[in-house]
Design a protein around this nucleic acid. Structure first.
Length: 862
RNA sequence: GGGCGGUUAGCUCAGCUGGUAGAGCGCGUGCCUUACAAGCACGAGGUCGCUGGUUCGAGACCAGCACCGCCCACCA
C-alpha cells in the first residue's frame, strides 16, 4: 500500500509495459475457435501495410475496435480481434527497391527470385513494427494468430478465388484502355487514380481536308498523341460540319487519312467543336473508337516513350520531348492556329504521384456487375448495416455503376497470377499445368484483390475450419471512408460469393482526424502528429480517450485538449481509487474475496451513487452500441468527475475517515463495489489505469480485462428518491457556494443559516458541510435573516455573521431581484399571448405557469 | 457537372422527435480543504453564417444565398 499512498500521479510510462505483458501472457486475447458467431464477437482488423507505422488513423480505429472488443468480452462473449498485415504490393516493393538502389543495385539486376527473397527478408526485419505499435495502444488483438496476406494458406485462398472466377467467366484477359502508372510501371485500377488540377496548354491545330479544300481545326492539350489519331469527330447536329461528315482529313506530320465521324459525345460549344480521336491514348476516344470501329494505334509505350508507330522522327522520345517536337514541327508547317493556358483536372497515380498515361494494354480484368447485385441487396435489406447511414447511399450508388476491375499489376511483389501460356494456349489453375513449355504470367494481382478475402481467408477458408465456423461472419468492420469502395465493397462481394455470407454485420465509418489547423495530416505536409509520441506524453489511456472523445460522424480536427482531458480522467480515477483503497479497513478487506462485494448502502448518498452508476452504465452501453464513442467517453468522464469525485467521495469522507464496526464494513463494501463497477465501466476506454488500479483492489483476482460485468439488474437500478434528494442537495450546495462567493465570504468561514425547505432530512448535514454553513438548530432564534436563498423546495435563510459583507450581500440580492423580475416579465408576456395558451401543448403551458408561480414566490421572499 | 458534410462561447466541438443554449481547453477571482495544486470552488464570455418562410414559439423544420471541406464524374 505504500506505493499507493505516495504515488499521487498516475504514471503511464511505468505502468503500460507491465500491463501489456500481463495481458499478452494471460492468453486472454487468443480465444479457442469454439462456438458460433451468435455467442462470439469478432472483428477483422483492417490490415495495416507491412511497411506501415502507426498513424493517427490507426490509433483512432484501434481505439474504436478495442472498445468494442473489450466491451463485448466483458459481456461474456468469446472475442477475437483478427490481426494481420497486408503485403501492400507497390508500397513494399518500393521500399525494397529503394534499399537496393542505396546498395547500388536494382531489382532487374538481381532478378525476380532474389528480389522476392529480399522482400521477405525485409518483412522479417521490419514487418512487425506496426503490430508492436498496436500493442502500445493497448489493442487486444489476437497476437498469437497473426496473418499476412501472402502467407501460404492465404495464397491458396487467393488462387482458388481467381481460378473460380475465371471458370465462371468473370475474370478475363483483354486489350483495353487502362490507367498506366509510369511511376510504378504498372497498370492501376480506376480507384487508385486521383484527379489533380494542372494548367496545360491548349493547342488549336489545323488538319487539312483530303479534298484539298479547306481545313478542320481541332483543340488538344496533348499534341503528341495526334500521332495516334485515327479520326476526327463532330457533333451530329453541328451544322458547321455537317457537310464534312463522311469526308476525310489529312493528319499533319503523319499523312494518314482520318475519317470525319459524327458522335454525340462531342460538345459543339467547346473549342472549335471538332475533336481529334485518339483511341489508343484517351479513354473517351477509346470508347468513340470502338463505337465507330476505328483502328487503335499505340504511339506511347509502357516505358513512357514514343513507339515506332509514332513515326521515325519521334520514336524513342519521352512523352515530354515528343510533345515539344510535335509542337515545333506543327509550327514549322504553320498548323498551329492558337495556344492558350488551360487549367483542368487530369488523373494522377495515387501511389506514385505520377501523371497517368492512358493506354491500351493487355491486362486481366474482373467483371463486377454480377457480384455487385447481391452485395447491393445485402446493404439494402440490412444484412449489412452501414453507420452512419448516409454512407449506405454512397455505397449503393457506386455499386450500381460499377465497372470492370483491372486486377493485374506489373509488379514482382504479390500474388502471382495462376496463369500459364504456351504459344496460343492459356491455362488457368492453382498449379502449373502438365507438360513442357509453359511460362507463368509474370504479373501479380492487385493487392486489394487479396484484401477482399480478408475476413474469411484469415480464418482458414477455403477449408471448413473451426475458426471459420466460430467467427464468420465477423460482427463489425471499422474503417475510414476512403476505402469504402476499394476494400469494404469488395469484401462484401467476395464474402457473399465465396464464404456464403456477408463478411460482417455492421460497417462503422469513423472520422478522419485532421491536423489541428484543419489541413490533412500528412507526412509530406509536415502536418502529421505521431500517436506514439502522444502516448509517451499523455499515456495510452489519454490518447485513446481523446481520440474517441473527438471522433464524430464527420471529420474532426485533432484535439490535444481532448487527449489532455483523457489523461486527467486517468489521473482522477487513480487518485479517487487511492482515496478509497488507502482508507478502507485493511483487516476487513480479506473478506472481499473476488474483489467485488455487493453494495451495502446505508446513507442516502450510497443509494444515490448506485443509482447514478446504473444511469452512467446504461448511457455508456447505449452509446457504444450505437457506435457513438464520443458520447460514451464523455458520459464516462462526466460520471467519474461530476458524480463520483465531485460529490460522492466528498459526501462519504466523514464516514470514510471515521466509520467503525458494522458501519465500516458496509461502507467499505459499498465503496469497493462502486469502485469495481466504475473500473469495469471505464476499462474499455482507458484499460491501463483501470487494470493497474484493479491490481490494488483487495481480493481482486486475475485481470480486470478478463472480468465479466454483472448484469445491469445486478449492478443496481435507478433510485428516484435518492436522486431527488441528492439532486436537491447538490443544487443547494451550488447555490450557497455561489452566494458565498458573491458576498466575498472568506473560504474558511462558517456562516450561520437555517434550511427552510422540505426534503433535506437526510442531506442537511451534507449541505452544511460542503457549503460551509453552520446550521442553526430548530427554534434557535437568531434575529431576522440577512439573506434568503431560493433552493429546491424552499429557501435557506442566512443569518448575520462577521464573515458576510452586508453591502455585497445587498448588491447580490438586488442582482437576483432584477433577474427574477426580468424572468417574471418574460413569463407573463408568454402567458399573455393567446396563441401560446391556446395552441401550445397543455403540459408546456402548465410548466410555464408553474415556473411563473415559483419565480413570484421567490421574488416575494426577497 | 452531380452528391454529401459543415458554418453554435477566444479555440476544438456537443446540442434527440422545435419550448430562448452546453462541455473541455483558455480567461478572471478565491482557496496549499488529511485522493489529486497537471487540484478544488466560483465566475465572466454566444443577436447559434446570411435572407426569407412554416409555427403560439426555430440553433433545431422548409426554401434560397454565401463561404469551407470531402466524394463521384469522359468535356478535347
Amino acid at each position: 500500500m505504500t506505493d499507493l499512498r505516495e504515488q499521487t500521479r498516475f504514471e503511464p510510462a511505468e505502468v503500460e509495459p507491465r500491463i501489456i505483458d500481463a495481458w499478452l501472457q494471460s492468453g486472454l486475447f487468443s480465444p479457442e475457435p469454439e462456438g458460433d458467431p451468435s455467442e462470439n464477437f469478432s472483428i477483422a482488423i483492417p490490415p495495416p501495410n507491412v511497411t506501415g507505422a502507426l498513424h493517427m488513423g490507426h490509433a483512432l480505429n484501434g481505439s474504436i475496435q478495442d472498445v468494442l472488443i473489450r466491451y463485448h468480452r466483458a459481456r461474456g462473449k468469446r472475442t477475437k480481434w483478427i490481426l494481420g498485415t497486408d503485403h501492400a504490393g507497390i508500397a513494399t516493393q518500393k521500399q525494397v527497391e529503394k534499399r537496393l538502389a542505396e546498395e547500388g543495385t536494382s531489382r532487374d539486376a538481381i532478378g525476380r527470385e532474389a528480389f522476392e527473397a529480399r522482400v521477405w527478408e525485409w518483412r522479417e526485419q521490419y514487418g512487425g513494427t506496426i503490430v508492436d505499435q498496436f500493442q502500445r495502444l493497448g489493442a487486444s488483438c489476437d497476437y498469437d494468430d497473426e496473418r499476412f496476406t501472402l502467407d501460404a494458406a492465404y495464397h491458396e485462398a487467393v488462387l482458388k478465388v481467381f481460378v473460380d472466377l475465371y471458370e465462371k467467366g468473370l475474370i478475363y484477359r483483354d486489350h483495353y484502355m487502362v490507367n498506366w502508372d509510369p511511376g510504378s510501371g504498372s497498370a492501376i485500377s480506376d480507384l487508385e487514380v486521383e484527379d489533380r488540377e494542372v494548367v496545360d496548354t491548349l493547342y488549336s491545330v489545323a488538319y487539312p481536308l483530303a479534298s484539298g479544300e479547306g481545313e478542320i481545326v481541332v483543340a488538344t492539350v496533348r499534341p503528341e498523341t495526334m500521332l495516334a489519331d485515327t479520326a476526327i469527330a463532330v457533333h451530329p447536329d453541328d451544322e458547321r460540319y455537317a457537310h464534312l461528315v463522311g469526308q476525310t482529313a489529312i493528319l499533319p506530320l503523319v499523312g494518314r487519312e482520318l475519317p470525319i465521324v459524327a458522335d454525340d459525345y462531342v460538345k459543339p460549344e467547346f473549342g472549335t467543336g471538332a475533336l481529334k480521336i485518339t483511341p489508343g491514348h484517351d479513354p473517351n476516344d477509346f470508347e468513340i473508337g470502338r463505337r465507330h470501329g476505328l483502328p487503335e494505334i499505340s504511339a506511347i509505350g509502357e516505358d513512357g516513350r514514343m513507339t515506332a508507330e509514332a513515326g521515325e522522327r519521334f520514336a524513342g522520345l519521352t512523352v515530354k520531348q515528343a510533345q515539344e517536337a510535335v509542337v515545333a514541327a506543327l509550327q514549322a508547317e504553320g498548323r498551329v492556329r492558337a495556344t492558350e493556358d488551360y487549367p483542368h483536372t487530369v488523373p494522377f497515380s495515387h501511389r506514385s504521384g505520377e501523371r497517368i498515361e492512358p493506354l491500351i494494354s493487355l491486362q486481366w480484368f474482373m467483371r463486377m456487375d454480377e457480384l455487385a447485385k447481391p452485395a447491393i441487396d445485402a446493404v439494402e435489406d440490412g444484412r449489412v448495416t452501414i453507420h452512419p447511414e448516409r454512407w449506405a447511399r454512397v455505397y449503393v450508388d457506386w455499386m450500381e455503376a460499377i465497372r470492370p476491375w483491372c486486377v493485374s499489376r506489373q509488379l514482382w511483389w504479390g500474388h502471382r497470377l495462376p496463369v500459364w501460356y504456351r504459344d496460343e494456349e492459356t491455362y488457368v489453375g492453382a498449379r502449373a499445368p502438365e507438360g513442357e513449355g509453359w511460362t507463368q504470367d509474370p504479373d501479380v494481382l492487385d493487392t486489394w484483390f487479396s484484401s477482399a478475402l480478408w475476413p474469411f481467408a484469415t480464418l482458414g477458408w477455403p477449408h471448413d475450419t473451426p475458426a471459420l465456423r466460430a467467427f464468420y461472419p465477423t460482427n463489425v468492420l471499422s474503417t475510414a471512408r476512403d476505402i469504402l469502395f476499394l476494400w469494404v465493397a469488395r469484401m462484401i462481394m467476395m464474402g457473399l460469393e465465396f464464404a456464403g455470407d456477408v463478411p460482417f454485420d455492421d460497417v462503422y465509418i469513423h472520422s478522419v482526424i485532421q491536423a489541428p489547423d484543419g489541413r490533412r495530416m500528412s507526412k509530406s505536409l509536415g502536418t502529421g502528429i505521431d500517436p506514439l509520441e502522444e502516448i509517451e506524453e499523455h499515456g495510452a489511456d489519454g490518447v485513446r480517450f481523446g481520440l474517441l472523445a473527438m471522433s464524430s460522424s464527420q471529420d474532426v480536427r485533432y484535439s490535444r485538449e481532448k487527449v489532455a482531458q483523457g489523461e486527467q480522467l486517468a489521473n482522477k480515477l487513480w487518485n479517487a481509487s487511492r482515496l478509497i483503497l488507502t482508507r478502507i479497513d485493511p483487516d476487513a478487506t480479506t473478506r472481499f474475496a473476488g474483489g467485488a462485494p455487493a453494495a451495502r448502502p446505508q446513507a442516502i448518498e450510497d443509494r444515490w451513487i448506485l443509482s447514478r452508476l446504473a444511469a452512467a452504465r446504461a448511457e455508456v452501453e447505449q452509446r457504444v452500441e450505437a457506435y457513438d464513442f464520443s458520447h460514451a467517453a464523455l458520459a464516462l468522464y462526466d460520471f467519474v468527475y461530476g458524480e463520483l469525485c465531485d460529490w460522492y467521495l466528498e459526501l462519504v469522507k466523514p464516514r470514510l475517515y471515521e466509520a467503525e464496526g458494522e458501519a465500516r464494513e458496509a461502507l467499505d463494501a459499498t465503496l469497493l463495489h462502486v469502485l469495481t463497477e466504475t473500473l469495469m465501466l471505464a476499462h474499455p476506454v482507458i484499460p491501463f489505469v483501470t487494470e493497474e488500479i484493479w491490481s490494488f483492489v483487495p481480493g481482486a483476482e486475475g485481470l480486470l480485462a478478463a472480468r465479466q460485468a454483472g448484469s445491469l439488474a445486478a449492478t443496481g437500478t435507478r433510485d428516484a428518491e435518492a436522486e431527488r434528494a441528492l439532486g436537491a442537495a447538490i443544487e443547494t450546495v451550488t447555490a450557497l457556494r455561489g452566494w458565498r462567493d458573491g458576498v466575498r465570504a472568506p473560504a474558511g468561514a462558517r456562516i450561520p443559516a437555517r434550511i427552510e425547505a422540505a426534503g433535506y432530512e437526510h442531506t442537511a448535514e451534507h449541505v452544511a458541510r460542503l457549503a460551509r454553513f453552520e446550521l442553526l438548530a430548530n427554534g434557535a432564534a437568531a434575529g431576522a435573516p440577512v439573506a434568503s436563498i431560493s433552493i429546491p423546495g424552499g429557501t435557506v435563510e442566512i443569518h448575520h455573521s462577521d464573515a458576510v459583507d452586508l453591502g455585497a450581500a445587498e448588491r447580490k440580492l438586488a442582482e437576483r431581484r432584477a433577474t427574477l423580475e426580468a424572468e417574471v416579465a418574460r413569463c407573463e408576456a408568454k402567458l399573455a399571448n393567446d396563441g401560446f395558451v391556446a395552441k401550445a401543448p397543455p403540459p408546456v403551458v402548465a410548466a410555464e405557469r408553474e415556473k411563473l408561480a415559483q419565480l413570484r414566490e421567490e421574488l416575494s421572499g426577497l
